[in-house]
């Protein structure tokens, strides 16, 4: 039971990361119907900008942890979306309306480009960061095992909930969010009634990248090491989460992310760590075969 609770906590933390990235996939897929393969790299860039900001603050002498965290969060969430915006502007906008395959190839190309861009600029070595927040609550103590809920995990979960609330408000209550939902339903119709489609799509990429940069910061805090390759695997799993939750559905993306996180944590705990990625892929395959619309997705009707 103790072990189970511990894995539940770990899985939820992991799931928050996947869910945050998955929202970016699902929003982009919902609005322009393409898999933004480079979204995982945006997450990776977010993690790199975060580590640079932490190191800079360290040299500047900002050591009060809450302030440092706040500054890093703001820096990452402001600077990373520029990459998301530029990605759409440079690589995807010229291809709007061309075959889907072309857009996917461009996305893969962009993913390779960004990975190597970061590798060239920041070096291929693994980048470690000293733990920023340590300690935690211990409970359910038995003689040889106790469940640890670290302060970091609490912070991650609280921040995720706050961010999700802000994000939900943004989509449901603001005019930009309304335009976003309109474009998701029908791009052509939305433009006919005066929605600026280009700007709305850019907005989608910016929002997705903001959430991904938060996931990058959380990843950095949680694992303490990053390299230029983390975006690939996290991206695939987040995509799996988006499909599992039902692509196009925002709550579905978060739900899918948490499920994938839990499955991965429990699989590693009770079966084998080596095959945890296989577990994630198998779920993707199974979901697509038996329930292609995902858990919360709307069925996709094909008209002739």
């Amino acid at each position: 039971m103790e072990y189970f609770t511990q894995q539940l906590i770990n899985g939820l933390t992991l799931g928050a990361i996947y869910g945050m990235i998955a929202i970016g996939y699902t929003m982009v897929y919902g609005i322009i119907g393409m898999i933004n393969f480079a979204h995982g790299e945006i997450f990776m860039i977010g993690a790199f900008i975060s580590i640079i900001a932490f190191l800079l603050l360290g040299t500047l002498g900002v050591t009060w942890v809450p302030l440092a965290l706040l500054i890093v969060l703001l820096v990452a969430m402001v600077l990373t979306p520029i990459y998301g915006w530029a990605l759409e502007r440079v690589a995807y906008r010229p291809l709007r309306g061309s075959p889907r395959l072309a857009a996917l190839i461009t996305a893969i190309g962009m993913s390779i480009f960004l990975q190597n861009y970061v590798q060239l600029l920041q070096g291929a070595r693994v980048k470690p960061l000293q733990p920023v927040i340590s300690g935690g609550f211990e409970f359910m103590r038995t003689e040889n095992f106790s469940v640890v809920l670290s302060y970091l995990q609490i912070l991650i979960i609280v921040l995720t909930v706050i961010l999700m609330a802000v994000f939900t408000l943004l989509i449901n209550r603001t005019s930009m969010g309304r335009a976003q939902r309109a474009c998701e339903q029908d791009l052509g119709m939305a433009s006919l009634v005066g929605v600026n489609v280009d700007r709305t799509i850019s907005f989608t990429f910016v929002v997705g990248a903001t959430l991904a940069s938060f996931a990058g910061l959380v990843f950095l805090l949680n694992y303490g090491v990053i390299d230029f390759y983390i975006g690939f695997l996290a991206g695939i799993k987040a995509f799996t989460a988006a499909v599992l939750g039902g692509i196009g559905s925002l709550p579905g993306a978060m739900l899918g992310g948490i499920l994938i996180g839990l499955i991965e944590a429990f699989w590693s705990a009770y079966f084998t760590v080596e095959y945890k990625d296989v577990a994630a892929y198998s779920i993707l395959v199974l979901v697509l075969i038996f329930r292609p619309t995902g858990l919360l997705g709307k069925p996709d009707i094909e008209k002739v």
Binding site: A102, M110, F113
Partner: peptide, 13 residues
């Protein structure tokens, strides 16, 4: 690989 990725994007665009 940088050039490879860039070439993929540029040719497709």
């Amino acid at each position: 690989m940088l050039a490879f990725g860039a070439a993929m994007v540029l040719i497709m665009v």
